[in-house]
């Protein structure tokens, strides 16, 4: 009998998700789950789900989970980790949750150096509530609350969370990756692996910002959305490692087509 070469990670539940066709949440759920499996962390992992499209993430990851109030996942994660430092704690948050209503919690969680991992999904829009402008919506990008496109005179510029968190003095691992091509997804997984490893070693706070698409609310087919991300988001949201606990800050640089980091 042939050996299966592609199986569901143990850290993912055997269920269908509610995500829209072409949504990149599925990719990133899988990458997180693969990393938990490969590092052997699943049995001591507690996840924290946000409010947003991934509100039901607790049904998709096969580990203990908390569902947090909107924006508060880093505070909930802090509580879990402080109560049980032996647990591996991660939050999985979107851009409205983390960069808008939850701005205070993410900044202070990072600044305290909580030994938790934040998986930050940036798709430049509010998904679940129907495509409103997010703090990360691109200039000129149309959303239901900026129907003529984001006007930077009124709404300011999109917030670069990885850069912002990297300015904190507290040691951390901060990276940005993307999932719009298989190569980028491989790189994203590597960033997640480093993030969880730093936590498992008790080293530092870690956050990986993952550029994502929202075909439904962007109003385009999934393949086109991937291209839109590359054309519009990549120049503004550079990929790379922004900060490590070892070497202080590093200038971000784009990953190379041949896979060299």
């Amino acid at each position: 009998m042939a050996e299966p070469v592609f199986i569901r990670p143990e850290s993912l539940s055997d269920v269908s998700t509610h995500y829209c066709p072409g949504c990149t949440h599925g990719i990133f759920h899988r990458l997180v789950a693969e990393v938990l499996d490969e590092l052997g962390l699943r049995e001591r992992t507690v996840g924290v789900a946000p409010v947003g499209c991934s509100v039901l993430a607790y049904n998709y990851f096969d580990c203990d989970f908390h569902e947090a109030a909107h924006g508060r996942a880093p505070a909930v994660a802090t509580g879990i980790k402080r109560a049980r430092p032996d647990l591996i704690v991660f939050s999985y948050q979107g851009d409205g949750d983390l960069a808008s209503i939850g701005m205070a919690e993410i900044v202070h969680c990072a600044n305290r150096g909580e030994k938790v991992t934040v998986v930050f999904i940036n798709n430049a829009i509010y998904g679940m509530t129907g495509g409103q402008m997010a703090p990360t919506t691109m200039p000129g990008q149309v959303a239901t609350t900026c129907q003529m496109g984001r006007d930077v005179e009124l709404a300011g510029y999109p917030i670069r969370m990885a850069e912002l968190i990297s300015t904190l003095k507290t040691p951390a691992f901060i990276a940005r990756a993307s999932g719009h091509t298989p190569l980028h997804a491989v790189n994203a997984k590597e960033m997640l692996r480093r993030a969880f490893r730093y936590q498992a070693e008790g080293r530092c706070f870690s956050m990986v910002e993952l550029l994502s698409t929202c075909p439904t609310n962007w109003g385009m087919p999934p393949a086109e959305a991937m291209k839109w991300l590359e054309k519009n988001m990549l120049p503004y949201y550079p990929l790379g490692v922004f900060k490590t606990p070892d070497g202080g800050d590093r200038a971000p640089h784009p990953i190379q087509p041949d896979g060299r980091d």
Binding site: V46, V48, H66, A68, A69, R72, A75, V76, A77, T78, G79, I80, K81, R82, A83, R84, L87, A104, E105, V107, H108, R112
Partner: peptide
């Protein structure tokens, strides 16, 4: 462990997390 949170909003959510692990908080 004592944590001075960044706000009452954060405090109560830290409680939510810690209480979820079964510890008295």
């Amino acid at each position: 462990t004592f944590v001075q949170a960044e706000s009452e909003v954060a405090s109560i959510n830290m409680l939510y997390g810690a209480a979820g692990t079964g510890e008295r908080v």
